[in-house]
Nucleic acid binder design. Sequence first.
RNA 1: GUCCCCAUCGUCUAGUCUGGCCAAGGACACCGCCCUUUCACGGCGGCGACCGGGGUUCAAAUCCCCGUGGGGACGCCA
Length: 467
Amino acid sequence: MPDVVTRFAPSPTGYLHIGGARTALFNWLFARRNGGKFLLRIEDTDQERSTPGAVKAILEGLTWLGITWDEGPYFQMERMALYRKEAERLLAEGRAYRCVCTPEELDARREAARARGEKPHYDRRCRNLPPGEAEGKPSVVRFLAPLSGRTVVRDLLRGNVAYENEQLDDLVLLRTDGSPTYNFVVVVDDATMGITHVLRGDDHLNNTPRQILLYEALGYPLPRFGHFPLIHGMEGGKLSKRQDDVSVTAYRDRGFLPEAMINYLVRLGWGHGDQEIFSVEELQKIFSLESVGKSPSRFDPEKLLHVNAHYIKTGEPDRLAVLLVPFLRRRGIEAEPSAWLAKAVRTFQERSRTLEEMAEASEYYFRRKDPDPKTAEKFLTPEMAPLLEEIARELADLPDFTPVAMEPVLLRAAENRGVKLGKVAQPVRVALTGGTVSPGLFEVMDVLGRDEVIRRLLHASGTIRGG
RNA sequence: GUCCCCAUCGUCUAGUCUGGCCAAGGACACCGCCCUUUCACGGCGGCGACCGGGGUUCAAAUCCCCGUGGGGACGCCA
């Protein structure tokens, strides 16, 4: 058994979101760093809300990020017999009892308690039900929690956190239909799966003392606990579906690179001196819980964009070409990965923050784009027609159609007219790309190829003369 | 309401454990300049923070207390 076994245990009620992805990442890195194992477990005991589609989406998200699990995915629905057995045991040992209160009654009492300014807790009235009273009635199984004393959570990140047991609740272990609830299964599973480090979001800190009590009642050894600060949206507070983009795959579909996502996510709540850029390999060597902060952080799409730009800038053109293809197709451009596409990619690596941006910006490599009237009027003026034709002619005569050979052609054209290069370059750029913004002119020509360059230059001059 | 957690630039953070090296460093964003065939990239510079109040100490961003603020939890959700 390795010294470290961690897990990620999402509930399949939606896609993999940013917060869950970071929790998975931290667990994974911690396991890898310590030569341990990382398991995946699907918490699907809520049959109302769990869906197969969500399971698929979560696995897809993790796979895209490159977060690999050593065991699983385990499904709790397949482990029902175990939970029932453990619940029976607690019942038999008098550490759990049947409760016949209905959800409606509980709701009403909760409301009343809140109105009185009390903590809205179950009042434990079924604790002393006469034997047999619950027979034949719908009932749940509740944990018989201690009424006094205190439970201390020894948290790896926060130190010791003490709770008065009287603040805790007799939580429901088994629902009326016999299915187990979260706080119960999580304990049974973590214990039986040999999880050594339970590392999860801060929203679970308050559950931990109850779970510790359950560990004790069940006679399980206690794992170590660690609670990460939550990730908030830019408005503060939990990431919300409405205000923030929270799905990991949505970022994939918008042209973000997985390594950028990992890099950005790991820096939310964790730091390593002044360093900003980390490869996964490096993270697996240096990630540590000690460097995880305690305060919540905000998810900032601007910075993610910056990190993604970095990875696009430094990425392998061949790989980026492969990744770019779907984004081109989405724009109706049937492209295939190729050396040519990689060359095209190279010209945009320093000016695209996402693959989506790259696909959009590089459209004119695949089909001619005509300038809008305003741009045409400004740059494709009547006196430009002979110039474009002259340039086309000279380019046609070039022994080698290379950037170094092209440059003197434009330089000469500018010199002959006594203007700066820019005066000539912009009209050519508009003729070639339909716009005033593009990679270096000679790079663009190189990608387009001699024939297409000449074709577009003459088309532009033809338009000027004809219109 | 009760319980719990947290608190350094607008944002992510370094520094806090082991007080002095901090007139607080880096990154994103923003602004200016340079480079330049456009846009970017890059380079240089600027703006910008220790939540407040008490204490401890020769010395506090760092330790303690109290406020305040933010967040989380209080479910037959996870």
